[in-house]
């Protein structure tokens, strides 16, 4: 069962639609105990980092998310849901993220049209579970103004964890994968068949991981 966290994210319904379309077992909740006991977590998101972190705090969901992640349950963060894993975002410098991974989310530099909106290509960086069955440079849908930089420092988590990069002025991290943690900057729930495949890969992962625990 995938627990989809409801904190008022604008794309919650679309994510649900994709899970429903794929026949995935899921529940939508904003209850702390259900999040803490989840076997798999999906954090949707689109909009504003500060608003997301405030909503998660108001619903008392920050500790339950960390608790579940402490048990290494599969996690997929979409757009802001990926940003949430990191320490901070320039979108709301006063509010820390979950800080599970090190790094700061940055704003696109002036000179580029922002939001980065539309279909752009993924450069798949390594064999990842998220992109299983996909090859080439597939197009996916983006709608964001802030991004995870590809840190040149090789010790940086964001570089080692990058599962895909995308080029928009610079090369930024379009997807991360580290152990149980997965995150995508794009919107798989709005990226046609390619996006549905990414969601299905996560669902399969969750089912497998649940099977191993049983």
């Amino acid at each position: 069962m995938i627990t989809v966290i409801d904190y008022g994210a604008g794309n919650l319904r679309s994510v649900e639609n994709a899970l429903h379309y794929l026949g995935a077992p899921y529940q939508v909740t904003s209850k702390a105990d259900e999040v803490a006991q989840a076997n798999a977590l999906l954090l949707p998101g689109v909009g504003h980092f500060g608003q997301m972190m405030r909503s998660l705090a108001m619903l008392d969901l920050i500790l339950p998310i960390k608790e579940a992640l402490g048990r290494k349950v599969p996690y997929l963060g979409i757009c802001l849901g990926m940003h949430a894993l990191f320490e901070a975002s320039e979108e709301a410098p006063a509010l820390p993220g979950l800080g599970i991974l090190s790094g700061t989310i940055r704003r696109f530099t002036p000179g580029l049209k922002v939001p980065h909106m539309g279909w752009n290509q993924l450069q798949l960086k390594k064999s990842s579970r998220l992109f299983r069955g996909l090859s080439g440079d597939p197009y996916v849908y983006f709608a964001h103004s802030f991004y995870l930089p590809q840190d040149k420092n090789s010790k940086s988590a964001s570089r080692e964890n990058a599962a895909a990069l995308t080029s928009y002025g610079i090369d930024f991290v379009a997807a991360i994968e580290r152990g149980n943690l997965q995150g995508v900057q794009f919107h798989p729930e709005k990226s046609g068949d390619i996006g549905l495949r990414v969601v299905r890969n996560f669902v399969d992962d969750c089912l497998r991981s649940a099977g191993e625990r049983d």
Binding site: R13, N17, H20, Y21, Y141, K190, G192, D193, L196
Partner: peptide, 11 residues
């Protein structure tokens, strides 16, 4: 919109 978004996964 709700009915469309249940079957069409593009913006």
């Amino acid at each position: 919109v709700a009915r469309t978004a249940r079957q069409v996964f593009i913006p």
